[in-house]
Design a protein around this nucleic acid. Structure first.
Lengths: 223, 223, 223, 223
DNA sequence: GATGAATGAGGGTTCATTCAT
DNA sequence: GATGAATGAACCCTCATTCAT
């Protein structure tokens, strides 16, 4: 089970916004400049939030001239997408080390913990992402797409559990997935972006238990 | 059971943002002008979103001079608060006509329906509210406060049900309330602001069933 | 001997700026309102300086409606003139109690002390007057006229002393008066408006001694 | 002997007001633009006065876009400081060509003439400076600081003359310097800013004679 | 006389983006 | 590729003054 706001977007990295200017560096120097810009952008976005960044702060932080930004990016959207790509690489690693359990409850718990941990790790970028999604249709669509990828996977899992007779058959799998995924991602937002601090373990436990209860999964220990 | 983003704020309406200029009208003409401004503001905010409004469009839409806006409001924050106050008056009426049932499931369903209906009714204002909350600390706090009022009421309900032995005693009432309230409000946001259309009845049913399941409430007919 | 910035302006009080609106109150209530406005204006000018006053603060401070100001005054210039008139009444009292001495040095000392004392007493209004004079040709002219009245009186005194053989005959009485009067008024400005504090007695002594020396008056004690 | 309102301020020129934006040009083109702006600013300030300038007139006069002003300056204060720096460069040259005389009277005369001549040369800028000093604490402080530099130098000269037994020992050198310096600068202001025209030679003679008399210096030829 | 709501012109400032060097 | 100066549209907000009540 996985939750919203996570994706690979393999091919959209270069062509995200509007393909007008040059994009990929062709030289080693260019590669270094571009990387410095993305790293600087991340720091600036995290510091100021998506809506408040002064675009010219990014090349300044990266130690290059203001015009250089436009050698690799078309504007705010474009460079923020590059920052998101950076973060996603990290977010995708979370699940890997989890030993896949056959117990549904453990699976849910593991997915929730993984999601919440990576959300916490990237809270400042997620804050920006929320700001971007609320003010820019492009990122709104992006967020929807990422959410849907989660929702679909979780919907498939619910469908499977229903078929196995261990989940409430009256639930629409798609809608239930949508609602439960929303619940987890919103809890994460509240805790880590709005800074309403709750211990991570408590968040994992309550979301897991609610999720399991909601589906009628009682776990191996509740016969 | 009720959900986030709803409150009374009875007398604090004017004093929210920055108490600099004159505020309340003292004459009938003033009252009329102020109302026209708030109504116009609602239309403009709904049309353009919180972040994109051109403030001068509001007095223009209201049919008065640009400066008149500042006779009653201190700026964008201030007039948007007045619009929110307008909407809240309406949102508070939703629950009333619901016949209070003794069946917990009916109560949950009724609260959910009421919340979702009013959210739908004011979707465009809620969109602005989300934008405001993400870009302006004042509205972020406002949203938190409103959410907490819901969360506390629902937490109390959960505690009661646990005491009566009809809800999972292992759940932390506060955290469960937080998560489930977030679920409902985020489902509403998704359906009505992000325009991911789902029939209202389906939303009511799935949220209600998930909520009930999550708490182990199965309704009176399923003993 | 007397110094700049002091005059009676008996007849200019009503007709100073631009005689467009109504001016003098015709009823007792009107008299009270007008006085309250002038008193309030003085407080506001002293608080904010001539250039920074918000005109509408004055009727607010006086406890009447903003429009009422225009019943008696035509604007900032006009009401500030009324404030100046108030202050001048007081400044004219300073000299009176001084026992007229026949010793030129005593006369100079007495005039200087009187000037500096009343400047100190009205420092905040004098600050406004300087601001007004520098930004508004009307008050610039007014200041010049007041200064010239002093200068002429002092020039006459110098001429008399020269005729009596007790003052440097090589000095142009008019120019000398201009320079020495400027010295005293600027010292007052510096001490009381710029808040470069020097004990009053020291100011009196240094200006008096310089003035006397400059004219070659040695006083009765220096034979 | 020298008089108020003159200083070097060598390297603090840019950092005076608010150090927010980029300031010094790094290219030749930039240097040219900045100079054009300062020169244009001087013309506009002289034409309209410090208080009345429309800031956007300056880049218009300089032949560049309105925003370009903010490439080098933070606003009115900042660019006016640059104009003052320009004028000071010129004012500092005045004294140099004066052949240093050993006669105190000649020294005083020379200092007075130098001061009055450069004041006359920059009368319109001095008018602005007075306006700025009266309405803006930053320039008030600046004026005080410049005045104090003069005052201290002149106080030292007075102290020296007293030690040599050629100046009235009863005078407080600091206060006497303050008063006499104020006299000269105010006479200059009156003649050249207030346009109360007096021949330069007459001003030099009267201020010199008053200054000398006031100190009891009678010149070498009057033993 | 007094009220206070309505007016609306006016200008400072930011900053994403371009482009000559 | 990199530079950084130049651009200029866009917009909020103040507040002196008027005038219907």
């Amino acid at each position: 089970m996985e939750h919203s706001d996570d994706t690979d977007r393999s091919e959209s990295r270069e062509a995200g916004v509007g393909d007008a200017g040059p994009k990929r560096p062709r030289t080693t120097r260019g590669e270094r400049t571009r990387s410095a810009l993305v790293a600087a952008a991340r720091r600036i976005f995290e510091r100021d939030g998506y809506l408040n960044v002064r675009l010219s702060d990014i090349p300044a932080e990266a130690g290059c001239a203001s015009g250089t930004l436009y050698t690799y990016f078309n504007g705010k959207e474009d460079i923020f997408e590059a920052v998101l790509a950076l973060v996603e690489d990290d977010m995708l690693h979370g699940d890997r080390d989890a030993a896949p359990s056959s117990d549904p409850l453990d699976q849910i718990r593991s997915a929730n913990r993984s999601y919440l941990e990576s959300y916490q790790r990237h809270a400042l970028v997620m804050r920006c992402f929320e700001q971007a999604a609320v003010s820019d249709p492009h990122f709104q669509k992006l967020r929807s797409m990422r959410a849907h990828r989660f929702i679909e996977r979780n919907a498939a899992a619910i469908r499977r559990l229903q078929a196995e007779g261990v989940a409430d058959p009256a639930l629409d799998p798609e809608l239930a997935s949508k609602a439960l995924s929303a619940m987890v991602s919103r809890v994460a937002f509240s805790a880590y972006v709005l800074e309403d601090p709750v211990p991570l373990d408590d968040l994992v436990e309550v979301t897991t238990r609610l999720w399991a209860n909601a589906l009628w999964i009682t776990g191996p220990h509740t016969p």
